[in-house]
Amino acid sequence: MLTYCTNIHPGHSWDEIVTKVWPQVLQVKEVVAPDAAFPVGLRISALAARQVTPAAARRFADCCADDGCFIPTINGFPHGQFYGTPVKEGAYLPDWRSPERVRYTLDLIRLLRLWLPPSLTGSISTLPIAYGRYMCRDDLGVVRKNLLTVLRELELSASAGKPVILALEPEPGCLLETARDVAHFLEAMAFPADLRRLIGICFDCCHAAVLHEEPRRAFSLLGEAGIAVTKIHLSSAVRFATNHLQAAALFGDDCYQHQTSVRSHAGTVHFPDLADAINDVPLLQGEWRIHYHLPIYDSGNALYGTTNDFIGEVLTWAPPQTLLEIETYTYANLPPKLRQGGVIESIAREFAWLGGKL
């Protein structure tokens, strides 16, 4: 199943999702799937999730059916405002130590329980616990308690015939960066077996490429650990090996966190943001990879490259039947020359490019 994530369309409140985001979704459907049922990866903020009354949720379900669409997955990673304002590390707050993260995720579960079509297993992607690589034992205890609350709600959904899996999404600079981190974390959490099956992973191609993760090894490890790969984000990172400062300046912005890795003969150095790499080591050579979601059809030019070939590796080794979701939320922040044609055309080109890969 192939979809795209609506976090590419600005929309923070429920009214904005209905009146601004959804019309663009239908424009995309008209281009890429005019005669077929169209899955939609819906991004809903905590504010929007609170605003949806039961009656409004049922109206939206009817609207989806009338429009030939359905909702198999929700992006529950960014809790708050995600558009038109500097986000940076705020994108990871509140994290899984906070009751606000629990309330937000419970709201999303209840919505997806209503919207999920029969016979499908849904998913809600979420942040990889917290930003930062370290957490004290007491904090991990709070995290476990909070996740158990959510997993018990997911158990109720499964019992009602609407199975939904919480999908941790590893990301550079976070507590969980890789598939191996997720496996170790879930082993340490020691959830009861009946709840453990309700938590899986959202594998993001851009994130994994920045960390030089090997897809074959990652998916093999996940399979051995019994961790469900519920969703794969089809995304592409920026990469370059020459003209470092000129290329880096092209993609610098104050909105999102652009974690950067620099690999050379001396090893790999990681920076929390692109600006840190530029300011701290302006002459550092080697291959730079930047957490910056480019349109997946973009293969780069003389100045910069991309990791879109990595998507092919991921598709080769990914478990069959995994939900595939194009995710290019940085579209509005792209250099102007890369935004020619508009967002609908760009999404359509991503579907077409991926069709060649599949």
Rank of each mutant, 00 (worst) to 15 (best):
P94G: 07
G122I: 03
P117M: 11
P94C: 09
L106V: 15
V142I: 15
L116W: 01
S157A: 15
T126R: 04
A160T: 09
R110C: 07
A160S: 14
A91C: 11
R103N: 09
I109N: 05
R152E: 15
L111T: 06
R137N: 10
P99F: 08
A130D: 10
P163Q: 13
G161R: 09
L116F: 12
G90N: 09
L168R: 03
R133K: 14
I124K: 03
R144V: 09
I124L: 03
R137D: 11
L120W: 01
S125R: 13
L156M: 11
N146T: 09
D181A: 11
R103W: 06
G90Y: 01
D107P: 07
I129D: 02
I129R: 04
E169N: 14
T149N: 08
A130R: 12
Y134C: 02
A160M: 04
P163V: 13
V102I: 05
T149K: 10
W115G: 04
D138V: 10
E155V: 04
H184G: 04
V164G: 00
L151W: 01
K145W: 13
S119N: 13
A91D: 05
P170Q: 00
I129Y: 13
R113D: 08
L168T: 13
M135W: 00
W115S: 02
I109S: 06
H184P: 00
S98H: 12
P170E: 05
D107S: 10
P94H: 12
P117I: 01
P163A: 14
T121F: 10
I124W: 06
L108M: 08
Y134V: 10
K145G: 07
S125I: 06
V142S: 07
S125N: 15
L120A: 13
L175M: 07
F185W: 15
K145I: 10
V150S: 02
E155M: 10
P99R: 14
P172E: 14
I109F: 06
W115H: 07
G90A: 11
K162M: 08
I165H: 01
R113W: 14
